[in-house]
Protein backbone atom coordinates (compact mmCIF):
# COMPACT_ATOMS: atom_id res chain seq x y z
CA UNK A 1 0.00 0.00 0.00
CA UNK A 2 2.86 2.30 0.89
CA UNK A 3 4.52 1.60 -2.45
CA UNK A 4 1.38 2.55 -4.28
CA UNK A 5 1.19 5.77 -2.36
CA UNK A 6 4.55 7.04 -3.64
CA UNK A 7 3.11 8.26 -6.89
CA UNK A 8 2.44 11.84 -5.99
CA UNK A 9 1.87 14.09 -3.09
CA UNK A 10 -1.81 14.14 -3.85
CA UNK A 11 -2.12 10.39 -3.86
CA UNK A 12 -0.11 10.19 -0.66
CA UNK A 13 -2.45 12.57 1.04
CA UNK A 14 -5.40 10.54 -0.15
CA UNK A 15 -3.80 7.37 1.18
CA UNK A 16 -3.17 9.04 4.51
CA UNK A 17 -6.81 9.90 4.83
CA UNK A 18 -7.97 6.46 3.75
CA UNK A 19 -5.47 4.88 6.10
CA UNK A 20 -6.80 7.03 8.92
CA UNK A 21 -10.23 5.67 8.21
CA UNK A 22 -8.97 2.10 8.45
CA UNK A 23 -7.10 2.39 11.71
CA UNK A 24 -6.95 -0.81 13.74
CA UNK A 25 -9.04 -1.32 16.82
CA UNK A 26 -6.54 0.62 18.91
CA UNK A 27 -8.11 3.68 17.33
CA UNK A 28 -10.44 3.88 20.26
CA UNK A 29 -7.73 6.12 21.74
CA UNK A 30 -9.08 8.83 19.44
CA UNK A 31 -12.40 10.53 19.80
CA UNK A 32 -14.42 11.90 16.95
CA UNK A 33 -15.36 15.40 17.94
CA UNK A 34 -15.44 16.49 21.53
CA UNK A 35 -18.44 15.08 23.38
CA UNK A 36 -20.33 17.02 26.01
CA UNK A 37 -18.77 16.92 29.45
CA UNK A 38 -20.94 16.88 32.51
CA UNK A 39 -18.10 17.79 34.86
CA UNK A 40 -17.41 21.13 33.22
CA UNK A 41 -20.99 21.53 32.02
CA UNK A 42 -19.80 22.15 28.46
CA UNK A 43 -21.63 21.17 25.30
CA UNK A 44 -20.24 19.00 22.54
CA UNK A 45 -17.71 20.69 20.24
CA UNK A 46 -17.26 19.83 16.57
CA UNK A 47 -16.54 23.01 14.62
CA UNK A 48 -14.54 26.23 14.60
CA UNK A 49 -15.14 29.51 12.79
CA UNK A 50 -12.55 32.22 12.27
CA UNK A 51 -12.74 35.84 11.14
CA UNK A 52 -9.35 37.11 10.09
CA UNK A 53 -7.50 40.09 8.70
CA UNK A 54 -3.95 40.41 7.50
CA UNK A 55 -1.66 42.66 5.49
CA UNK A 56 -1.17 41.25 2.02
CA UNK A 57 1.02 42.10 -0.91
CA UNK A 58 1.27 39.50 -3.66
CA UNK A 59 4.57 38.85 -5.38
CA UNK A 60 3.26 39.35 -8.86
CA UNK A 61 6.50 40.92 -9.99
CA UNK A 62 8.44 37.75 -9.08
CA UNK A 63 7.17 35.99 -12.17
CA UNK A 64 10.10 34.62 -14.18
CA UNK A 65 10.64 36.45 -17.42
CA UNK A 66 8.71 39.54 -16.37
CA UNK A 67 10.38 42.78 -17.38
CA UNK A 68 10.26 45.47 -14.75
CA UNK A 69 7.81 45.64 -11.86
CA UNK A 70 4.37 46.34 -13.33
CA UNK A 71 2.54 45.53 -10.11
CA UNK A 72 4.69 47.78 -7.91
CA UNK A 73 4.61 50.51 -10.54
CA UNK A 74 0.83 50.47 -10.59
CA UNK A 75 -0.13 49.79 -6.97
CA UNK A 76 3.02 50.65 -5.02
CA UNK A 77 4.77 48.51 -2.44
CA UNK A 78 2.46 48.94 0.52
CA UNK A 79 0.43 45.90 1.47
CA UNK A 80 -3.37 45.98 1.43
CA UNK A 81 -5.84 44.39 3.80
CA UNK A 82 -6.78 40.77 3.22
CA UNK A 83 -9.94 39.80 5.04
CA UNK A 84 -11.38 36.34 5.24
CA UNK A 85 -13.10 33.63 7.20
CA UNK A 86 -12.41 30.00 7.88
CA UNK A 87 -14.59 27.07 8.83
CA UNK A 88 -13.07 23.97 10.44
CA UNK A 89 -14.60 20.61 11.18
CA UNK A 90 -12.81 19.34 14.28
CA UNK A 91 -13.28 15.75 13.28
CA UNK A 92 -10.86 13.96 15.59
CA UNK A 93 -9.82 14.62 19.15
CA UNK A 94 -6.35 13.23 19.86
CA UNK A 95 -5.92 12.60 23.57
CA UNK A 96 -3.45 14.88 25.31
CA UNK A 97 -2.93 16.90 22.13
CA UNK A 98 -6.06 18.46 20.69
CA UNK A 99 -8.32 18.41 17.65
CA UNK A 100 -7.56 17.54 14.05
CA UNK A 101 -9.79 18.02 11.07
CA UNK A 102 -10.33 19.63 7.68
CA UNK A 103 -11.03 23.30 7.17
CA UNK A 104 -11.82 25.68 4.35
CA UNK A 105 -11.11 29.39 4.13
CA UNK A 106 -12.07 32.24 1.81
CA UNK A 107 -10.38 35.63 1.63
CA UNK A 108 -10.59 38.86 -0.33
CA UNK A 109 -8.13 41.62 -1.09
CA UNK A 110 -8.18 44.35 -3.71
CA UNK A 111 -5.62 46.72 -5.13
CA UNK A 112 -6.96 49.76 -6.90
CA UNK A 113 -5.96 53.24 -8.00
CA UNK A 114 -7.04 56.03 -10.30
CA UNK A 115 -5.46 55.79 -13.72
CA UNK A 116 -3.66 58.48 -15.64
CA UNK A 117 -3.92 58.93 -19.35
CA UNK A 118 -1.16 57.05 -21.10
CA UNK A 119 -0.09 59.73 -23.49
CA UNK A 120 -0.46 62.98 -21.62
CA UNK A 121 -0.24 61.58 -18.07
CA UNK A 122 -3.31 63.59 -17.10
CA UNK A 123 -5.58 62.39 -14.31
CA UNK A 124 -8.42 60.40 -15.81
CA UNK A 125 -11.83 59.23 -14.71
CA UNK A 126 -10.80 55.58 -14.97
CA UNK A 127 -9.56 53.24 -12.29
CA UNK A 128 -7.53 50.06 -12.54
CA UNK A 129 -7.62 47.28 -10.00
CA UNK A 130 -6.63 43.73 -9.15
CA UNK A 131 -8.90 41.69 -6.91
CA UNK A 132 -7.70 38.47 -5.28
CA UNK A 133 -9.83 35.77 -3.63
CA UNK A 134 -7.58 33.20 -1.91
CA UNK A 135 -9.36 29.91 -1.17
CA UNK A 136 -7.83 27.14 0.91
CA UNK A 137 -8.66 23.60 1.92
CA UNK A 138 -6.43 22.35 4.71
CA UNK A 139 -5.91 20.13 7.70
CA UNK A 140 -6.03 22.01 11.00
CA UNK A 141 -4.48 20.79 14.23
CA UNK A 142 -5.38 22.73 17.37
CA UNK A 143 -3.40 21.68 20.43
CA UNK A 144 -5.87 22.71 23.09
CA UNK A 145 -4.68 20.21 25.70
CA UNK A 146 -2.86 23.01 27.48
CA UNK A 147 -6.14 24.78 28.03
CA UNK A 148 -8.34 21.75 28.63
CA UNK A 149 -5.96 19.77 30.85
CA UNK A 150 -3.81 22.40 32.51
CA UNK A 151 -5.95 25.53 32.32
CA UNK A 152 -3.33 27.52 30.41
CA UNK A 153 -5.40 29.68 28.05
CA UNK A 154 -3.12 29.31 25.04
CA UNK A 155 -3.79 27.07 22.06
CA UNK A 156 -0.98 26.58 19.56
CA UNK A 157 -2.16 25.42 16.19
CA UNK A 158 -1.00 24.62 12.70
CA UNK A 159 -2.60 24.42 9.28
CA UNK A 160 -1.49 22.88 6.01
CA UNK A 161 -3.30 22.47 2.76
CA UNK A 162 -3.85 23.45 -0.83
CA UNK A 163 -4.74 26.96 -1.97
CA UNK A 164 -6.42 28.30 -5.04
CA UNK A 165 -6.41 32.06 -5.55
CA UNK A 166 -9.00 33.44 -7.94
CA UNK A 167 -8.06 36.84 -9.33
CA UNK A 168 -9.41 39.46 -11.66
CA UNK A 169 -7.83 42.57 -13.16
CA UNK A 170 -10.41 45.19 -14.05
CA UNK A 171 -10.90 48.81 -14.98
CA UNK A 172 -13.84 51.21 -15.10
CA UNK A 173 -15.22 49.41 -18.13
CA UNK A 174 -15.16 45.93 -16.56
CA UNK A 175 -12.67 43.06 -16.75
CA UNK A 176 -9.45 44.18 -18.37
CA UNK A 177 -8.27 42.77 -21.66
CA UNK A 178 -4.84 43.03 -23.23
CA UNK A 179 -3.68 42.32 -26.74
CA UNK A 180 -1.90 39.03 -27.31
CA UNK A 181 0.74 39.23 -29.99
CA UNK A 182 0.96 35.47 -30.32
CA UNK A 183 -2.68 34.81 -31.04
CA UNK A 184 -3.55 38.18 -32.45
CA UNK A 185 -6.52 38.30 -30.11
CA UNK A 186 -6.81 39.54 -26.56
CA UNK A 187 -6.29 37.92 -23.20
CA UNK A 188 -8.85 38.48 -20.48
CA UNK A 189 -7.46 39.58 -17.12
CA UNK A 190 -8.79 36.87 -14.85
CA UNK A 191 -7.80 33.43 -13.72
CA UNK A 192 -6.83 31.23 -10.83
CA UNK A 193 -3.51 30.20 -9.32
CA UNK A 194 -2.91 26.93 -7.47
CA UNK A 195 -0.55 26.51 -4.56
CA UNK A 196 -0.16 25.66 -0.91
CA UNK A 197 -1.04 27.32 2.35
CA UNK A 198 0.82 26.75 5.60
CA UNK A 199 0.23 28.53 8.89
CA UNK A 200 1.28 28.34 12.51
CA UNK A 201 -0.20 30.43 15.26
CA UNK A 202 -1.36 30.67 18.79
CA UNK A 203 -4.69 31.72 20.17
CA UNK A 204 -5.62 33.10 23.53
CA UNK A 205 -8.74 31.53 25.01
CA UNK A 206 -11.04 34.34 26.06
CA UNK A 207 -12.99 31.98 28.31
CA UNK A 208 -10.18 32.37 30.82
CA UNK A 209 -11.11 36.00 31.39
CA UNK A 210 -14.67 35.26 32.47
CA UNK A 211 -15.53 31.62 32.88
CA UNK A 212 -19.11 32.14 34.03
CA UNK A 213 -19.92 34.27 30.97
CA UNK A 214 -18.27 31.70 28.75
CA UNK A 215 -20.44 29.00 30.32
CA UNK A 216 -23.52 31.14 29.76
CA UNK A 217 -22.64 31.59 26.10
CA UNK A 218 -22.13 27.85 25.80
CA UNK A 219 -25.52 27.18 27.37
CA UNK A 220 -27.25 29.81 25.26
CA UNK A 221 -25.55 29.47 21.89
CA UNK A 222 -23.43 26.36 22.09
CA UNK A 223 -20.17 28.28 21.71
CA UNK A 224 -17.62 26.36 23.73
CA UNK A 225 -14.71 28.73 23.43
CA UNK A 226 -13.83 32.12 21.97
CA UNK A 227 -10.29 32.97 20.95
CA UNK A 228 -8.21 35.81 19.66
CA UNK A 229 -5.37 34.59 17.56
CA UNK A 230 -2.23 35.61 15.76
CA UNK A 231 -0.66 33.45 13.10
CA UNK A 232 2.07 33.52 10.54
CA UNK A 233 1.18 32.09 7.19
CA UNK A 234 2.86 31.42 3.92
CA UNK A 235 0.65 31.40 0.88
CA UNK A 236 2.47 30.07 -2.15
CA UNK A 237 0.44 30.16 -5.33
CA UNK A 238 3.11 29.49 -7.88
CA UNK A 239 1.25 27.04 -9.98
CA UNK A 240 1.30 23.64 -8.34
CA UNK A 241 1.74 22.19 -11.80
CA UNK A 242 0.08 25.11 -13.57
CA UNK A 243 1.82 26.54 -16.66
CA UNK A 244 1.41 30.31 -16.19
CA UNK A 245 -0.01 31.25 -12.81
CA UNK A 246 -0.21 34.80 -11.55
CA UNK A 247 2.12 34.87 -8.57
CA UNK A 248 -0.08 35.78 -5.65
CA UNK A 249 2.20 34.35 -2.95
CA UNK A 250 2.93 36.15 0.27
CA UNK A 251 4.34 35.48 3.72
CA UNK A 252 2.50 37.50 6.28
CA UNK A 253 0.82 37.45 9.65
CA UNK A 254 -2.88 37.44 10.39
CA UNK A 255 -5.00 38.13 13.42
CA UNK A 256 -8.62 37.62 14.24
CA UNK A 257 -11.33 36.00 16.29
CA UNK A 258 -12.18 32.34 16.45
CA UNK A 259 -15.15 30.51 17.91
CA UNK A 260 -15.40 26.80 18.67
CA UNK A 261 -18.83 25.23 18.83
Amino acid sequence: MIARCRGSVVTAAACLVVGLANLPSTAHAFEFGTPAQKATRSSAQHFAFELRASPYRPRVDDEPGLRGTPFADMFGTNPRLLIGFEFDWQTVRIPAIGTLGPGVSVGYATFSRDSKTVKTQRPSGDTTSLSVYPLSAMAVLRADALWRNLGVPLVPYGKAGVAYALWEASNTGGVSRAGDAASGGSVVGSGGSWGTNLAVGVSFVLNALDRSSARSIDNAAGINASHIFVEYYTLRTEGFGQAHPLRLSDNSWAAGLAFEF
Binding site: E63, G65, L66, G68, P70, T117, A178, S190, A243, H244
Partner: peptide, 29 residues
Protein backbone atom coordinates in the same frame (compact mmCIF):
# COMPACT_ATOMS: atom_id res chain seq x y z
CA UNK B 1 -7.79 58.57 -24.63
CA UNK B 2 -6.18 55.34 -23.44
CA UNK B 3 -5.58 55.18 -19.70
CA UNK B 4 -3.22 53.14 -17.58
CA UNK B 5 -4.35 49.62 -16.88
CA UNK B 6 -2.52 47.14 -14.67
CA UNK B 7 -3.39 44.18 -16.83
CA UNK B 8 -2.15 45.79 -20.00
CA UNK B 9 1.04 46.89 -18.24
CA UNK B 10 1.56 43.36 -16.89
CA UNK B 11 1.08 41.74 -20.28
CA UNK B 12 3.23 44.35 -21.97
CA UNK B 13 6.00 43.51 -19.49
CA UNK B 14 5.91 39.88 -20.57
CA UNK B 15 3.42 38.47 -18.06
CA UNK B 16 1.92 35.20 -19.20
CA UNK B 17 -0.97 34.61 -16.79
CA UNK B 18 -4.59 35.19 -17.55
CA UNK B 19 -7.15 34.02 -20.03
CA UNK B 20 -9.99 33.41 -17.60
CA UNK B 21 -10.66 30.99 -14.78
CA UNK B 22 -11.56 28.21 -17.20
CA UNK B 23 -8.11 28.37 -18.72
CA UNK B 24 -6.75 27.23 -15.38
CA UNK B 25 -8.09 23.75 -16.13
CA UNK B 26 -5.43 23.06 -18.69
CA UNK B 27 -3.01 20.15 -18.89
CA UNK B 28 -1.06 19.53 -15.74
CA UNK B 29 -3.67 21.02 -13.48
Amino acid sequence: EPTEDFWQAYRAAGGQAGGGVCSAHGAGM
